[in-house]
């Protein structure tokens, strides 16, 4: 029975390692998304992935190491107790408890590793979160305001001026503003910023393919920036259990070239100013 338990406790780590190993090939890893491989679709996202893989390497090595050590201890323990301890030639148990050297070692080594990770990721973190480090392009202002609400994403865009150029997004709603729900259109290929708010409870703005996740907190307006490398559709999800309809908070991010986005905004503006009279300048009737 002792051997059984040894095997039992070695079996699960081996299963875990094998499962992790085959996961990417089985599409149990990152969502494949538009890249088809599960790779991040934004430059910052790639760096976040690099950090992730680095941490994964460290934890994997630690995991395998500790499991091997555990197995060794279990098996030698089992072997020793095969013979009664006062019998001839019985192996002695090796006491480690209270070993000062060991204690120091396994305090300092993990601390050093953690410190290394903390310092190493600082740069990426700062770029993502600290306003002064935001890329130049996004400092001119947000492209949209995203308001989370149980259970949808309401989006406000600044309107267009007479020449068809976007106005500046104001903190308060303006008569010229344009609105959509669950449909976020932003420029691809350059860093863009949104303002994130919540109308009711806490939500989380999650673009899995771009590796963006930011809580939306009632009462705060949080700037979030990111860059979608490819012009395509991405999913926008809520990543904070916000009520029974949390699973419904699915929307799309359409990243498109600036020209296309402007055309889309113009169409939105025409639709939103529709007065239903076909000859009044715009032909977009709702039928």
């Amino acid at each position: 029975m002792k051997r059984f338990w040894c095997a039992f406790f070695m079996f699960w780590p081996i299963v875990a390692v094998i499962l992790c190993w085959i996961a990417p090939g089985q599409n149990w890893w990152f969502p494949r998304g538009p890249s088809g491989t599960g790779a991040a679709m934004s430059p910052l996202g790639e760096r976040i992935d690099d950090l992730f893989y680095m941490i994964l390497m460290i934890t994997s090595v630690t995991f395998v190491g500790t499991q091997v050590a555990l197995g060794y201890v279990l098996f030698t323990g089992a072997r020793r107790s095969d013979t009664s301890h006062d019998a001839e030639g019985a192996e002695k148990t090796w006491f480690t408890h209270g070993s000062h050297n060991l204690e120091v070692m396994w305090s300092i080594v993990p601390a050093a590793v953690l410190l290394f990770i903390a310092l190493y990721q600082m740069e990426v973190w700062a770029e993502y979160r600290v306003k002064d480090k935001f890329p130049e392009e996004v400092r001119k202002g947000p492209q949209a305001e995203v308001t989370a609400r149980q259970f949808e994403w309401r989006i406000r865009y600044p309107g267009l001026d007479e020449n068809g150029n976007p106005l500046e997004l104001m903190p308060d709603p303006q008569p010229t503003d344009l609105y959509t729900v669950n449909d976020l259109h932003l420029t691809s290929g350059e860093p863009v910023m949104i303002w994130l708010r919540s109308e009711d409870v806490q939500h989380s703005f999650f673009l899995p393919e771009l590796r963006v996740k930011q809580d939306a907190v009632p009462g705060l307006v949080i700037p979030v920036w990111f860059e979608a490398t490819k012009s395509t559709e991405y999913s926008l999800l809520c990543a904070e259990l916000c009520g029974w309809g949390h699973y419904k908070m699915k929307a799309r991010l359409v990243a498109e070239r600036e020209e296309d986005r402007l055309v889309w905004l113009q169409e939105l503006q025409a639709a939103q100013n529709d007065d239903g009279v076909p000859d009044a300048g715009d032909a977009s009737d709702d039928e």
């Binding site: 309401r154 669950n182 799309r252």
Partner: peptide, 18 residues
């Protein structure tokens, strides 16, 4: 179909845009 697509703002009727 518009109601289903856009929901009813200000109520719990959600948008089913996707």
């Amino acid at each position: 179909s518009q109601i289903v697509e856009n929901g009813i703002p200000g109520t719990y009727m959600p948008s089913f845009k996707l």
